[in-house]
């Protein structure tokens, strides 16, 4: 049964769990305890044990995600504020980001395909290195499922934040510009927040890489994925 009271309850539940999990995350600073991961797990458990179905949660979802589109547009502002970085060494940065974005998409899609996963999953895995709001939109365009894509994006962001810097060091990639860009391309916002702790250059580079990876993947994925799967 869908009722305004149920909708109000699911919205309240989501907001409260977000506030609590954000407090926990700020306190612990643990890459595994992000607000998204904690609140989602908490909400699913509460809905499951109180017998509320996803169909009943859906009306609240429509209301809560209303501002996601405008917020995504706002990503242009940090990119604009960091525009001097793009100017400083435009071609190495652009080549590095394009190659990273294209290779990771290709490897993910092909490995998922040879693993025998169904088309819906293969399409959902394609934008896994893209920042979540845009990854969701790409998933819908290439025939994936937004919720599954969020799971892949969060897995990638979390693992990338945890091992990214060590892998780069292990492979003797020490240049701060290269490290920042690599983390932004690989692990979007989560990687950006992590590598920012190494220094301002790394953080700003990662932010720029995150935005450009999202734009580049948006343009190539709809053309490239049908071809890879064909």
């Amino acid at each position: 049964m869908n009722s305004p009271i149920m909708t109000a309850f699911t919205i309240l539940l989501t907001v409260v769990l977000y506030i609590i999990s954000r407090k926990i995350w700020i306190k612990t600073q643990n890459a595994l305890l992000t607000p998204l991961l904690l609140s989602t797990a908490g909400i699913i458990l509460i809905l499951h044990y109180s017998g509320i179905t996803f169909e009943q949660y859906k009306p609240g979802k429509q209301i809560m995600t209303f501002l996601l589109g405008p917020a995504t547009v706002g990503l242009a502002l940090p990119l604009y504020l960091n525009r001097h970085i793009l100017r400083s060494s435009f071609f190495p940065i652009l080549i590095g980001i394009v190659c990273g974005a294209v290779s990771t998409l290709t490897v993910a899609v092909l490995l998922a395909k040879v693993s025998g996963l169904e088309a819906l999953i293969v399409a959902s895995i394609a934008p896994k290195s893209v920042t979540t709001p845009i990854a969701i939109e790409i998933a819908q365009i290439v025939g994936g499922d937004p919720a599954i894509t969020v799971a892949f994006v969060v897995f990638t962001g979390t693992l990338g934040s945890m091992i990214g810097a060590s892998v780069l060091t292990l492979c003797k990639i020490t240049n701060p510009v290269a490290r920042g860009l690599a983390m932004g391309v690989t692990a979007h916002g989560q990687g950006t927040a992590t590598i920012l702790q190494e220094g301002q250059t790394q953080g700003a580079m990662a932010g720029v890489a995150m935005a450009l990876t999202a734009i580049i993947t948006s343009f190539i994925a709809p053309l490239f994925i049908p071809w890879l799967l064909g």
């Binding site: 590095g96 190659c99 990273g100 990771t104 990638t156 693992l159 990338g160 692990a187 890489a209």
Partner: peptide, 21 residues
């Protein structure tokens, strides 16, 4: 697919940018 593609992204971008700069 998720782990291998993650390593590919890290090392492709990191390697190319370090080499070019």
């Amino acid at each position: 697919p998720l782990v291998v593609s993650l390593l590919v992204a890290l090392l492709t971008t990191g390697g190319i940018v370090q080499l070019l700069t």
